[in-house]
């Protein structure tokens, strides 16, 4: 059972191009749109969102602040103005609703960079990968908080490639491109999903929020799964799929409950059997409907080599 080098081929054949790439296209559109909100001001003089992903003001009324950055500032013993606190509360609320790490796959400007590296890995069948435990990101997040507390500097912002890259794009500070290039190289040549999946503490923070968030991906039609492994090939956090997809025997919920899931929808797109769907964590229809449905006969795969 090895991951497929051309995972979307069968999905396209069975579901059509749009259904096989829907969420991929929507995600790129969302990422571009979020960037465009910040760029209309400097490029066209029409100000929609000002600032960066660290803290921003949209249409002069909506403040948004990254909760992880604010947590470090608090650890560094600075009590911020109400604007930043409100902004962080809004962000917290939004991601509790929409899924913590949906930031990673729908907003973060580094996501296309990491996705491109992952795509090239699949394309050229690069299997070698350094073994990094994904929990390391939680420890890096903790270290950033501790260092902030000791040194009195918002520590992760010294190196944060997410905000550095966003600043580079929005403010034209070219040095921010360096960490993005480093992450691309690292993900391509050193570790599969190396940065976003194992190291990034910003994602770790949104992952912690995501443990409790409402929006979820689930495998309601898991009985139809024919073990083609395409979802595992495209998922940036493949370990989140297993409990939901293979939980029939153990009676586990078909809802993907891990905070690591980025709600990218790649599994929804790639699955020719339409096993996966976007839903919410209180979707009770799933528990009953899913496992009683007739398993569809799995068809042998016709795939170009």
């Amino acid at each position: 059972m090895t991951a497929n080098v051309h995972p979307y081929v069968e999905a396209r054949e069975r579901k059509g191009v749009w259904r096989a790439h829907r969420f991929g296209v929507l995600r790129r559109a969302a990422q571009l749109a979020f960037l465009a909100l910040f760029l209309t001001g400097p490029l066209l003089g029409v100000w929609i969102a000002k600032g960066t992903l660290a803290s921003s003001l949209t249409l002069n009324v909506l403040p948004l602040t990254d909760p992880f950055i604010l947590a470090q500032s608090l650890a560094a013993r600075h009590w911020p103005e109400a604007t930043a606190l409100t902004g962080a509360a809004i962000v917290l609320g939004a991601y509790l609703l929409l899924g913590g790490r949906s930031f990673c796959s729908w907003v973060c400007p580094l996501n296309p960079v990491a996705d491109f590296a992952a795509f090239l890995r699949r394309r050229f069948d690069i299997r070698q990968t350094a073994k990094i435990r994904p929990e390391l990101r939680n420890w890096i997040a903790g270290a950033a908080i501790v260092v902030s507390a000791i040194s009195g500097v918002v520590a992760w912002e010294l190196v944060n490639p997410v905000t550095a890259f966003h600043r580079a794009l929005v403010f034209g500070l070219w040095f921010g491109l360096v960490p993005a290039l480093a992450i691309f190289t690292f993900d391509l040549l050193v570790a599969k999903h190396g940065w976003c999946g194992h190291l990034c503490p910003v994602g770790a923070c949104y992952g912690a929020i995501g443990k409790a968030s409402i929006a979820r991906v689930a495998a309601p039609a898991r009985a139809a799964c024919d073990d083609c492994m395409d979802c595992f090939a495209v998922c940036p956090e493949p370990h989140v799929i297993t409990p939901a997809l293979r939980g029939e025997r153990t009676g586990a919920s078909p809802v993907i409950l891990s905070g690591d899931c980025t709600l990218c929808g790649a599994c929804v797109d790639v699955c020719p059997e339409k096993v996966f769907a976007f839903t919410h964590r209180f979707d009770h229809r799933l528990a009953t409907a899913a496992d009683t449905s007739e398993p569809t006969v799995s068809r042998p795969k016709a795939r170009a080599a």
Binding site: G51, S55, G152, V153
Partner: peptide
Amino acid sequence: EKDFLSACVRCGLCVRD
């Protein structure tokens, strides 16, 4: 300066305004 780096999140809103 030492307090500034504990408070500034480098968002650039001051620059914009």
